[in-house]
Amino acid sequence: MKKQFNRQSETGGGRSSVMEGYNFAYLDEQTKRMIRRTILKAVAIPGYQVPFGSREMPLPYGWGTGGIQITASLIGSEDILKVIDQGADDTTNAVSIRRFFSRTAGALTTTRTREATIIQTRHRIPETHLTKDQIIVYQVPIPEPLRFIEPRAKEVCRMHALKEYGIMFVKLYEDISRHGRIAKAFDYPVLVNDRYVMSPSPIPKFDNPKMDRMPALQLFGAGREKRIYAVPPYTKVKSLDFEDYPFEVERWPHCCALCGSGNSYLDEIIMDDRGSKMFICSDTNHCNERVARGHKGNQEEPVEKAQISIGTGARKCA
């Protein structure tokens, strides 16, 4: 009779454990409850960084511990997990995190964006449009968008509370007057739901427009800085700009050398020591799927001298 009474706080989850000696999805149940409560508040206050009792994880701080703690609080047997770093499924850290969840939660994994229910990412949003009921989990090193303008936590806390973002606009405007443009190429600040200025994590600003009214739920985890924040589906996310200096994304004059894609974010590969280069998709899954569908790039001809510019003109690709 006594056995069926399982008091919550005593259930470490040993039974469901995949890796012997550890909890299901590594975290103990009490920690998961704390993180889950935090996630719900984050969703209810879009763009606001909710402090949480981040735990020490078996991976180093700065290597995705925030994202991992969120994913660990979500993941279950019906989920299919995709992990990317720099857009690629096969970079070492992505492989390592994917393996962590296979071992600790017995998670099913995939490289196909469309198939995934949870996508944990570092520095990119996939090119494939995310759909409703998918969840994208961003790894965030510095969650505070105002940190490099005002390093004091107390001070920025006050600014967020009062929606006093003057210094951010001053900083951006200084950039324009000194450099003729906003000198921010990644981690470009956004305003969420017309209320909180938020760091989109160090994604290139090329990806910023994808965040606006995205049908998927976006969760952000910063383990070392102990913050979780969120953007619910279909929420307005605006990249900060000025009327006379509207927000623009990077464009390349060339196409992916492997799949010929003309609208994806490109990695630059140095081919030799004479300056010849090649450009390929950073999103490996996007690229592979295009190649599989018969798209081809022009990989025999490396680009001689890089000509990359910001502009609005579309690339003419295969």
Binding site: N6, Q8, T11, G13, R15, S16, N23, F24, E29, K32, R33, R36, I39, L40, V43, S73, L74, G76, S77, L217
Partner: peptide
């Protein structure tokens, strides 16, 4: 099953 029960419920609440 407290581990899976609370996980599934959390996903519903989320």
């Amino acid at each position: 099953d407290p581990v899976q029960g609370s996980r599934q419920t959390f996903r519903a609440i989320l």
